[in-house]
Design a protein around this nucleic acid. Sequence first.
DNA 1: GCAGCCGATTGACTCAGATCAAATTCGGCT
DNA 2: AGCCGAATTTGATCTGAGTCAATCGGCTGC
Lengths: 237, 237
Amino acid sequence: MKPSVVTSELNGHFCDDCAVRGAAVCSSLDAAELREFEHLGRRVHFDSGETVFSEEDITTSFYNVLEGVMRLYKLLPDGRRQIVGFALPGDFLGMNLSGRHNFSADAIGVVNVCQFPKGPFGRFIEDRPQLLRRINELAIRELSQARDHMVLLGRRSADEKVATFLLGWRERLVALKGPSDMVALPMSRQDIADYLGLTIETVSRTFTKLERLGVIEIIHGGISLLDPARVEAMAAA
Amino acid sequence: MKPSVVTSELNGHFCDDCAVRGAAVCSSLDAAELREFEHLGRRVHFDSGETVFSEEDITTSFYNVLEGVMRLYKLLPDGRRQIVGFALPGDFLGMNLSGRHNFSADAIGVVNVCQFPKGPFGRFIEDRPQLLRRINELAIRELSQARDHMVLLGRRSADEKVATFLLGWRERLVALKGPSDMVALPMSRQDIADYLGLTIETVSRTFTKLERLGVIEIIHGGISLLDPARVEAMAAA
DNA sequence: GCAGCCGATTGACTCAGATCAAATTCGGCT
DNA sequence: AGCCGAATTTGATCTGAGTCAATCGGCTGC
């Protein structure tokens, strides 16, 4: 929760050894551009639970997630929370029209980001349409995911929501770390509940139910997918 | 539902008299560009209920809504439907990464669109970053709206959903046609239900309840907002 | 080792909204 | 005007998920 931000001293330079260089916005830049680009940003570290930015904050930077997981959420005045997504390495955050963030983001576990001040980044984009195109692609991809999530929130049962979440989350981890039936769940049950539009109790009960059915095993810090096909069947209509 | 498309004979030309020229993607083009641009697209008319494009269809065109209202929706295999948005004049449809539409769109009442074949449109964008920037803006705006809608779907009660919908819809009509407390609702109760993640019965009951409370009046083809402040109070937490 | 905490699980009960089932209203069309 | 079909409203009942309330279990710090 505290805004204490530790800035790495081996700063900006060395996109070379950046884990997400190929995947993130940077993938649209050639070697020379990358060299210039790396001077714009700097690596910033966040500890578990720290807030990277808050809804309604004036946008001062864009962020490229390098490492770790973040929850992105919106709060209603009375405290109800909806998590609108989880950010993983390669995700790009901070785009908006209003000049203010339209959701909050905080670190789930340790997080490293590449932070770009809005002004210089905006100027860098100006004459690099391929970077703009890349950002546009990311926005369109997110839009598509957002629409899928609307279907889940509006029209799916609790069982379907949980099953869909497990498969979707696994998919993202697979893309990042390679195939595995072990699905790490760094976020809390409350986070999952707020992502799926459920309560923590319902999420917990559904996990237990899936385990009793023998389709998953609940392990520390995640689950093991014992019967992916059955989970897929539950996720579908 | 039928794909019969009537093409206006006074074709492509005359963006001049286009109602949405200032608002839509076109707003990023100067007079000369607009002249070139208008040859790319053509006006296409759809009757009430006709499908403009379907989810999973290969994207062949982009669309700029000129007139009328469209429902944008996704279906689950068993027929459950989630409306992910309503398109109004000035809205731009068809952006995607997969080469396929990721939702279906059909006309609610008569609709006119400006249709651009994907290929020529893509080529036209190539060397016009300001058009790309405009499209990016539209995508980011939609993304923000999508996130707001996730909060509504995941965390709001039926009363709050309906109240929020009425205010949001009014806002869009105001932006389009100027202020009024008459809120035209061209979509059916079923459409509203599928947009809000409710059933038609719940929507109907909530309308009736609002009317009995004296905050709206249900009139033919819409409602009259008698007490906007009270509705806003219901919409907030 | 164990006391205290915090997140997760489990159980009992409730309730908002869904479901099922009629009316009723509102067109359009002879 | 009068009839038909679709959309909407209303009513009665049901139920999936929420709420409230204990535990449980694993870690932390003493």
